[in-house]
Design a protein around this nucleic acid. Structure first.
Lengths: 352, 352
DNA sequence: ACGCCTATTGAGACCGGTATCACATAGTTT
DNA sequence: AAACTATGTGATACCGGTCTCAATAGGCGT
């Protein structure tokens, strides 16, 4: 019980219990066999001294750190926060600790973080890769024996398991549903950065999930139409999004519905629309990705594509645990359904 | 460059560079002196083999893990997510890694997590203690030489630095301001769990920050009045909050303003009010703690007590870094201003 | 009482690094 | 030329655990 200022070791406990270091270690480490008598003596001594095992030393000795590394775009974003929660709930239950880091959706940063985590001897990595065209660092991790699971974003050919939404199909279905409601001009707004304010080519989108969504969006275009110019990029921050909304509203014929590629964009679009007095859904429909807190509070509430990211996280953790446990076999691509949660912001197109 | 499947050690690099293990370690560890020639040879060999230092082994050898542990109520809560972001931004910049864990505001869980983190040899702990009356585990950590910083919640007598809001004063000032707007009956709604639906005694509130806020609230009561019964507890989940709002609305004379003790409560209160068609601020004023995303999106936008938790986090990390660096001296209690962000939801009391 | 088997224990190598110390080599000093 | 001093390097103990292996002790059959 007594808290000592010096770090206690098995040797100290052994001395106090009058047994050898090996025996004390067996009791304290929970391996090997000991008699009940010595077991109790050692535990008592450990208790009295306030012994606390050094997990690091144990790790270096066993080669198992009990750590998994997580790299997400931004924990502050509820999307990732919920996923991280899912990961750590599941990991913790399996006795694994989690080191979390933010890439800020920056490739160089992501590379650096992966490197740091590998040096920390993480036994597995869960990553939301910011650029699925450049995953050499992840491939290297896998090659050196550290399993990788991608979350939210599937990377073809990497060989890592992936837990993702069914982005392309869900988006295509969503757009079809909107078309059935009479929407002919739908805009897609995303934070993806491009030189121009509109998307030139799908290849500009390096985040797999967003590219899949946009691909689904583009695929819903009627024969002969090209919807690339309906994809508005660089939607980062209130000012930029305000400008995009202003631009959309001034188009002729007008846009009747907006898809917001994530919940941050969605919130700002909603704000810009209500600031301009646009009535939802009478004048404009809005659908956003991710069921963030704010989308249920607004009037009207906002229709969202529900991404159950806590589940994403839990499943990603399960995958990494399985791989750490030695599971082999081809990379598994788990697509999680992202159902539409229909709320007031989606209605028939005006005049339809 | 070549990724090997076996773990490489300094000994492997040494062999390849044809120097002793000691010399290779000097170069790779960046300590001691070596000639430029051997230095380059070693680095070249390390590069060729794809050597990656084992940070764990280094830690056990140096006694410095480069890890700090964080225990918060719930990372999924934007309040903590932002704080965690502040912590990791600052820690990372100082070369420290961060292990994050969720207590779920459960004391037993918090104790268990602190124990796990100490075993992981974290060099410091940043904790939002869930019960400031029972911090023996934190005291023990400090006694054994691991500095502790509390975040959001100050614990008197623990001896740990604390980064907190100026909860009591800010609340008292806020209530005074509301009284000046004519509000005579103000309700306080909190998720704190108590046997009764109203607060019996301040001592029931074990989370320091909330207790301070409620203390500020109670202190604003006019002489002779006791506001304990105006503090509604157990506001966890939509149903409970709906019931509380229903109860508030049926009181005579009616409540004219509500204080929501955190942003989750605030969002649900807002929802319950708009579901009942209560006009803000004409019929009811609302103020919530924390400037969450949703509070800027609603109509009217919600007045909030702005808790700059990213700064809380950054400052907490700075404190822990200073303590790790050997700073001594008495515990510092840093009170961060939590200014009111005045938005549409706060107006004069009806009929005032 | 003797031999065999098994339960328990201790000695010591090892994990992958750091850090101390002694020694060798080369360059200065007198 | 002998003595002296940097400078660079290797040998080796050590960090706090795990784990293998051999030695000891007690129990049981005959």
């Amino acid at each position: 019980m007594t808290a000592r200022n010096k770090k206690l070791t098995v040797a100290d406990v052994a001395r106090a219990a009058k047994v050898s270091k090996a025996t004390a270690a067996r009791v304290l480490g929970g391996y090997g066999v000991t008699s009940e008598r010595t077991r109790e003596a050692v535990l008592q001594a450990a208790q009295d001294l306030g012994y606390r095992p050094n997990e690091l030393a144990r790790s270096v000795s066993t080669g198992r750190s009990g750590l998994i590394g997580v790299v997400v775009g931004d924990i502050e974003n509820a999307f990732f926060a919920r996923a991280v929660r899912g990961i750590s709930d599941t990991a913790r239950a399996a006795g694994l600790n989690v080191i979390i880091s933010n890439s800020g959706e920056d490739l160089a940063q992501e590379r650096a973080l992966v490197s740091v985590l590998l040096r920390q001897q993480v036994q597995g990595l869960i990553v939301a890769p910011t650029d699925d065209g450049d995953v050499a660092h992840l491939a290297e991790a896998m090659a050196s024996g550290t399993p990788v699971v991608t979350i939210d974003r599937w990377v073809e050919g990497l060989g890592a398991d992936g837990i993702c939404g069914d982005d392309r199909a869900a988006t295509a279905a969503l757009v079809a549903q909107m078309q059935a409601l009479g929407h002919r001009r739908i805009a897609y707004v995303t934070a993806i950065r491009t030189p121009q304010p509109r998307l030139q080519s799908l290849a500009q989108v390096r985040i797999a999930a967003v590219r899949e969504r946009i691909a689904g969006f583009l695929s819903a275009a009627p024969a002969g139409q090209d919807w690339h110019e309906r994809v508005h990029t660089n939607a980062t921050g209130a000012a930029a999004i305000d400008a995009i909304v202003a631009r959309l509203l001034s188009e002729t014929p007008g846009v009747t519905a907006i898809l917001a590629s994530d919940s941050l964009v969605g919130a700002e679009v909603f704000r810009a629309l209500s600031a301009r007095g646009i009535a939802l859904p009478a004048q404009m429909s809005l659908v956003a990705w991710f069921d963030a807190d704010w989308s249920r509070v607004t009037v009207p509430a906002v229709t969202v594509v529900d991404q159950p990211t806590h589940r994403f996280g839990a499943l990603a953790a399960e995958r990494i645990i399985a791989r750490i446990g030695g599971e082999t076999g081809p990379a598994r691509h788990q697509r999680i359904e992202t159902p539409l949660i229909r709320r007031g912001s989606l209605g028939p197109a005006p005049g339809d």
